[in-house]
Design a protein around this nucleic acid. Sequence first.
DNA 1: AAACAGGCCTAAA
DNA 2: TTTAGGCCTGTT
Length: 277
Amino acid sequence: MEEKIINTYRLASAEELDIVKTFECGQCFRWNCDENGVYSGVAMGKAAKLWTEGGEVYISTDAALDMWLDYFDLKRDYREMSHFDGGEYLDRCVEYGMGIRILNQEPWEALCSFIISQCNNITRIKGIVEKLCSLYGEKLDFAGETYYSFPQPVTLAFLTAEDLAPLRSGYRAPYIIKAAQAIVSGEIDLQALIDCSYSEAKKALLSLTGVGEKVANCVVLFGLRHMEGFPVDVWIKRALKEHFPPDFKPESLGKYAGLAQQYIFYYARESKTNATV
DNA sequence: AAACAGGCCTAAA
DNA sequence: TTTAGGCCTGTT
């Protein structure tokens, strides 16, 4: 087994990057917190641990720091990007959610994860994704523990729905396999969709079976770096109905509308969760 | 125990 | 173009 050197870096300030908000705002499914507030997970085939201490966020990893700076989108100023013309309620969401980063996840992982997400709660999505990784991902050893990478499309493209039965993903299994096949055949080039426009990327994704408006918007936003993406789920739908004018258009928020969406989503869900206590 | 959960597909107006 | 019902599965 290959031994890699694990380094610990200061990743960002706690103001720039709030790891709890970022990991718990529903955009990713592979980061888990232990009793000490240390998050561990896998991205881009690399395991890592993160924690906050003395106002700074640290990361232990055997990968390059720069890779994580990109993953956490730390090369730009979110404070500067978060000036939206969306009214008082949105201002409150922004203030409440400051520190959330939109992760630059791997395109295929985003696509596959959000296909799974449809009509499921987060707990179940995480369970299905984890099972998928442990069954078909690559085994990774990190700090004496075992992790699994997210399986490549080529690994999944030749499976049958029966092979995915252990995931208990139900009717989504064929969607996963078909999507993997579309990637492998070259029918869809996810990498290329990063460079083309938001609407072109979304259009391409919508051609996949099992990918509708909501899932496509999640994938462009969380996997293809298009911040115009504005996924509308039940939480957002409710917030829009209750706190925005009837003729409100997400496009009016500009090129970082997706960031606003995350603030709204996080605020809506948190305030609901806290209210039921 | 029936309804619902971070949708989507198909059929029918 | 919009609407209703069904869909795997797990929870409440």
